[in-house]
Simulated assay, not measured.
Amino acid sequence: MNTEIASELISKLDDISLPIEHQRHYNRRIGNYLEDNQDKWWTIDSRNAAERSANEIAEIITEKLIPNFNSLKSTNDLATL
């Protein structure tokens, strides 16, 4: 899972001749939110495994991703970063 943020204001300055992946203003992989800073892949082979994985992903989003996004509320926040 990747997370990205774009600023409309900064987009006006982007070099649109570059591929879109080089026009990102902020991006992080879900692994960057984990303690070991490594990507994680979930294996789903049962309903229980799916529920455990969904709960783990929801916890990462709730406890790490959303607070991080809350610190990036403006174009100035992105520029400072």
Rank of each mutant, 00 (worst) to 15 (best):
I10R: 01
W41S: 10
L13V: 01
R52S: 07
R28P: 03
A49L: 05
N68K: 08
N32R: 12
L78P: 01
L34D: 03
N48K: 13
I30C: 09
H22Q: 13
L18V: 02
E21Q: 12
R29E: 10
G31H: 15
L72F: 02
D77T: 02
S46A: 03
I60R: 11
N55S: 13
S74T: 14
P19I: 04
P19G: 01
R52Q: 14
E8C: 04
N70C: 10
N37G: 09
W41Q: 10
K12D: 10
S7F: 02
D77I: 00
E51G: 00
E35T: 12
A6Y: 13
Y33N: 03
A79K: 05
L72C: 00
Y26P: 01
R47H: 11
R47L: 06
I10A: 00
T75H: 02
S53V: 08
N2S: 08
Q23I: 03
L34E: 07
S46W: 03
R29H: 12
D45R: 06
H22P: 02
D77H: 06
D39C: 06
E63Q: 11
T3F: 15
K64V: 05
L18F: 01
K12E: 10
P67G: 02
D77S: 08
K40Y: 15
I20E: 10
E63K: 14
S71Y: 06
N68R: 05
L65D: 00
K64P: 06
E59Q: 13
L18E: 00
S46E: 10
L18R: 15
N70Q: 09
I16N: 11
N27T: 09
L9A: 07
H25C: 03
T43S: 15
I61N: 03
I60A: 06
P67V: 02
K40H: 15
E56A: 08
A50G: 08
P67W: 10
N76H: 11
T75R: 04
D39P: 15
L34V: 05
N76K: 13
E63Y: 12
T75A: 04
N70E: 07
T80I: 09
L18W: 01
A79D: 03
N27P: 08
W42I: 06
T62A: 07
A50Q: 15
P19F: 08
R52P: 09
N68W: 09
F69S: 00
I60V: 11
E59P: 07
K12G: 10
T43D: 10
A6L: 07
I30N: 08
I10N: 00
R47M: 06
T3N: 12
I66Y: 15
A79E: 08
S7K: 01
M1V: 08
L34M: 11
T62E: 12
H25S: 05
A6K: 14
L72A: 01
N55A: 09
D14Q: 12
L78M: 05
L65I: 14
R24E: 03
I5M: 02
Y33S: 02
L78C: 04
A58Q: 12
K73I: 02
N32Q: 14
Q23Y: 03
N76R: 12
A49M: 08
K73E: 04
L72S: 00
D45S: 08
S46N: 11
Q38P: 15
Q38V: 08
A49Q: 14
L72D: 00
N32E: 14
A58G: 06
S17R: 15
N32P: 10
N27I: 05
Q38E: 13
R52G: 03
E4M: 13
N48L: 06
R28L: 11
S74L: 01
L81V: 01
D45T: 12
T3K: 08
L78G: 00
I61P: 07
